[in-house]
Design a protein around this nucleic acid. Structure first.
Lengths: 125, 125
DNA sequence: TCTTGACCTGGAGTGCACTCCAGATGTTAC
DNA sequence: GTAACATCTGGAGTGCACTCCAGGTCAAGA
């Protein structure tokens, strides 16, 4: 799969895919003899994972650390698990913050519908 | 209330509070005769609202637009409501994305606990 | 073979949201 | 009154995550 195809498949630009590889957010992608990237199934799984994590706001640094551990020899499973656990805590916190904001928006919108907008309309009629 | 006190109360630095006022994220704060900010209850409500929205990732541009409408003469309730509704959609989307990532993390952590870490430990014992 | 378009690299540029700073002015405790 | 500290302004600097670009290589159709 070429970079254009992978780009299409995941809705990330080729520049972003190259950037992700350059900084180690995904492991090095296999190349053709002439140096052109060829995304295989494993590369695609990495892209998809990182797209998911990034869209949830997980910092690039945590993710590159995770990938780095994967590429290291020796036992790193516990360290990798710890990264996931740390990020889970952060995501739970952010979900909670967004839920707070959502409740507040719902409350405000309700007030616009029942009080503020009727009041404004009433001023003229 | 001085800027130091407001800063303390909401966990935002004085620089951030001044920045928020400068860009119109909160309306101009009342000043003492000598020009020093004096945060009253209404100013505090704005700070708290904006802290909540910003922590949920709402863009500054949307929030300044909302404040701008508030300061305009004439009926703006419907326009303000529309901003809130637009932001609600974005927040719901992000909550959903984060929930996806959370599910994925939970699944992965479970796999580390039941498979990957035991396997690594087993290699030596 | 030639041309056209996709791909490559390294590095510079961008946008957002702060964050810091210099130099000036105000305030408070002694 | 004065030392020490808080606050003010406008503007520059920072960090993150891309995004764009120049200048070159590669590949596929006419």
């Amino acid at each position: 799969m070429t970079i254009a195809e992978a780009s299409q498949k995941y809705g990330l630009t080729p520049d972003t895919l190259r950037y992700y590889e350059r900084i180690g957010l995904i492991p090095p992608v296999r190349r053709t003899a002439s140096g052109i990237r060829d995304y295989d199934e494993e590369a695609c799984r990495w892209i998809e994972l990182m797209k998911c994590m990034r869209s949830a706001g997980v910092q690039i640094e945590a993710l590159t650390e995770y990938v780095k551990l994967f590429q290291q020899p020796g036992p790193t499973a516990e360290a990798r698990r710890q990264i996931l656990v740390d990020q889970r805590i952060l995501i739970e916190k952010r979900i909670w913050e967004m839920q707070e904001a959502l409740n507040r928006l719902n409350y405000k919108i309700e007030r616009y519908d029942t009080v503020l907008i009727p009041a404004e309309k009433g001023r003229k009629g």
